[in-house]
Amino acid sequence: MREGSEPLLEIHDLVVRYGVATALDGVDISVRRAEMVALVGPNGAGKTTLLDTVSGLVAAAAGRIQLRGRLAQVPEGRRLFPEMTVEDNLRLGAWRVRDRRVDPVYELFPHLAELRRRKAGSLSCGEQQMVAVGRALMGQPDLLAVDELSLGLAPQVVDMLAAHLQDLNRRSGMAILLVEQNARLALDICSRAYVIEAGRIALTGPSEQLRRSPEVQAAYLGGAYEE
């Protein structure tokens, strides 16, 4: 079978429980190669649980996850190693792969090359997010999962990072799963989206179509969406 004809990530009927609480209840999601897909939903809907289950940090109670490639996650809150330098943070991202050269990341984010010897904990939130994205890229992923790219960042920084992700997707064909509370951003840069609510997929479809859905407009876009 030719590469690319199967989805890169296929999640079927996934159930995850924390004790008696059900965090995910029969979730189906798929991401094809070179696709940008958004997963939007309110706090506590199960977005991060979904990523953690795919990453192997959380065990599934039922269902099937098939990942045909490497996954790297940019975690919510960035979670850098604050006492280490930018460069050491980046290099640790390559733990699973042999190639630890950081130059490709510096080509993508030239500003990080200037900060390479700085402690990650001393950087601004936007710079830290760049390091977090760069660190995930060091794992040479086929699928980059970004958990809350925009959280706590100034709008112009978010726009810059979003442009970088789009560029990365266009140039290298890396698939991106963008997990966001900021539905406006997610629907703007991804071609397709899932809306998750209380552990279930409530809506799915092309971003264009979801943007026009009255439910999405009311719940996530603060009323009418403006072009």
Binding site: L57, P75, L92, R100
Partner: peptide, 22 residues
């Protein structure tokens, strides 16, 4: 050393270290 840095990473943030595959 890379191994020593991985140990430091585990002591700094276990969740992040696990996400790196450590």
């Amino acid at each position: 050393t890379y191994l020593g840095m991985a140990l430091t990473a585990c002591s700094s943030d276990q969740r992040a270290a696990r996400l790196m595959g450590i």
